[in-house]
């Protein structure tokens, strides 16, 4: 038991593990959180809007996101973003989007659905009178929201937002399925490189199987181009 373990591998690779992997994870978390909360708040305001179209669109988006596994959403955006980008730029082919940008967009869009529900409850927890008081002072909708309602809602929901962000932090490990360098991905890359490390036998064991997407193939460093051939092989 444990005799096959090479604990020294941790010491040797700690710089890579922490500098590269941890930086990637933290950057992704911070940016996705910021974007997710902004977009999520907009979604929440849409869901509470009196225009039917707006609220239906927003709740439709939130419901789809919330009933789809994150892994599938990651795949979706990995393929969708190049197409949408190409369409927006009027290109003739899907554009190339780096894996980092692709996963950043994914997490922003995905977590926004969850942040939306939190912010919606937050906004609803503020008495209607606050809104009226704002209007009575002559403030516009955006001023009332921005100056009066949202700051209070945000403060009330801070603990839940924080918990959700911790979950987001854990979720970033799933970009592994795109085989790019995050903290966890870095660890399994080391295993492949060393071929004497922790996962040697197990990787052999997985490789012949289908649909174990990530560990297969060589050790490509960071981003891989997307959009060209949609394939991992």
């Amino acid at each position: 038991m444990l005799t096959g373990f090479d604990w020294d591998v941790i010491r040797r690779t700690a710089p890579y593990l922490f500098r590269e992997g941890m930086t990637f994870t933290l950057t992704l978390t911070a940016l996705a959180m910021t974007g997710g909360i902004v977009f999520g708040t907009l979604l929440a305001m849409m869901r509470l809007a009196s225009y039917r179209t707006l609220s239906t669109a927003a709740s439709g988006y939130v419901n789809v996101m919330r009933s789809t596994p994150l892994v599938l959403v990651i795949f979706w955006f990995y393929f969708l973003v190049p197409w949408i980008g190409g369409w927006l730029l009027g290109a003739t082919r899907p554009i190339q989007v780096g894996a980092f940008l692709s996963s950043l967009i994914t997490f922003m869009m995905f977590e926004a659905a969850y942040y939306c529900e939190i912010m919606r409850a937050g906004i609803q927890s503020i008495p209607r009178g606050q809104m009226w008081a704002g209007y009575a002072l002559g403030l516009s909708y955006w001023q009332t929201m921005g100056q009066i309602v949202l700051p209070q809602a945000f403060r009330n929901m801070l603990p839940v937002l924080l918990t959700q962000t911790i979950i987001l932090f854990q979720d970033t490990s799933l970009v592994y399925v795109l085989s790019i360098t995050d903290f966890l991905g870095a660890a399994s890359k080391i295993a492949q490189r060393d071929r004497g490390g922790l996962f040697r036998d197990q990787l052999r064991r997985v490789e012949p199987r289908e649909a174990a997407p990530a560990p297969a193939g060589g050790s490509e460093p960071v981003a891989r181009d997307s959009g060209r051939a949609p394939s991992w092989r």
Binding site: S67, T68, P69, L70, V71, L72, F75, F79, L174, Y176, V177, V206, R209, E210, A211, A212, P213, A214, P230, S231, W232, R233
Partner: peptide
């Protein structure tokens, strides 16, 4: 639980998400 079962594709379980990906592939 239903959604999280998709994470099992990383250890080689060909569940719904993995099978969608294999169609794509």
């Amino acid at each position: 639980v239903i959604k999280n079962s998709a994470v099992a594709l990383t250890i080689g379980l060909v569940e719904l998400t993995a099978s969608a990906r294999s169609i794509q592939e």
